[in-house]
Amino acid sequence: MKIGYFPGCSLHGTAPEYEASLKLVAKAADIELVEIEDWNCCGATAAHSMNRMLSIALPARNLAIAEKMGLEEVVVPCAACYSRLLFALNEFKLDEKVRMNLQPIIETEFKGNIKILNVLDFLEKYVMDALKNKVDDKFKKKAACYYGCLLVRPPKLTNSERWDDPLRMEAILKKIGIDSIDWSFKTECCGAGLSIARTDIVGKLSGKIIEDAKDRGADMIVTACPMCQSNLDMRRGAINNYLKKDNNIPAIFITQLIGLAFGYSEKDMQFDKLFVPISFSNNNFSNNNDNLKMQKSKVKEVKV
């Protein structure tokens, strides 16, 4: 079974572990991910902040190429890219002006028949069944499933039913024996859009998320978006700065966990790429002292 795949810049940049784990999970479920040829950036917040048509045209080019490749579905693991691609497709379907103007801009024929799957759609549709009997004792850790904004919002676009209290990730994790906590910040914003320009805001928003997950006894935060994950994982400086204390709760991709359940190693799942380390090989988290030290020293330095 072949399904289209749009990695987006993050999976080729800051989140290689997400791509690696997703690909191996797909392989385990007997799915071949076909990368969209010569894909381009979806434009992200910058494009829709500056120009609407640009924010439609950039994703639409990718969709048009995917259609041309004969793909019926395309997996978009990055929630931000997913949102932009879905938005472009939706506008193409609903706005006649867009339909008329798009073709000359992207210079490719586009019919709008393609289906866009986010990573949860993909896991539910193609991987869930293969996860039977994958419950493993080593997963006895409590997860805080973090969805962020764009997997669920705007509800009309994403078609999410329980957008304020989604339970899809929880259901997937349950399949591999991971219990999830009930918490309040599942769909709060982590501040990704201002990651570089206003790092202080990221510290505050992501800080609140990490604090609640920790307070409610989560051992790890599970994400399905490279932007969320990178903020929660890499921005510990700003986060700890806001929280005024250090936090070592890891933020991991859902695909990394599922990969483990399929029997891949932590090395295969590129656990080494995570800033805040986690390991399932023994019953405790490997609190790598070096890493912690690095976190601490960074906090100090940023304060200066």
């Binding site: 917040t45 829709h48 902040s49 904004c149 764009l150 669920v152 919002r153 705007p154 509800p155 957008w163 304020d164 769909t187 914003c189 501040g191 990704a192 859009g193 201002l194 805001i201």
Partner: peptide, 8 residues
Amino acid sequence: LSCETCMA
């Protein structure tokens, strides 16, 4: 941040 919470 375009987090869409207001709209939702």
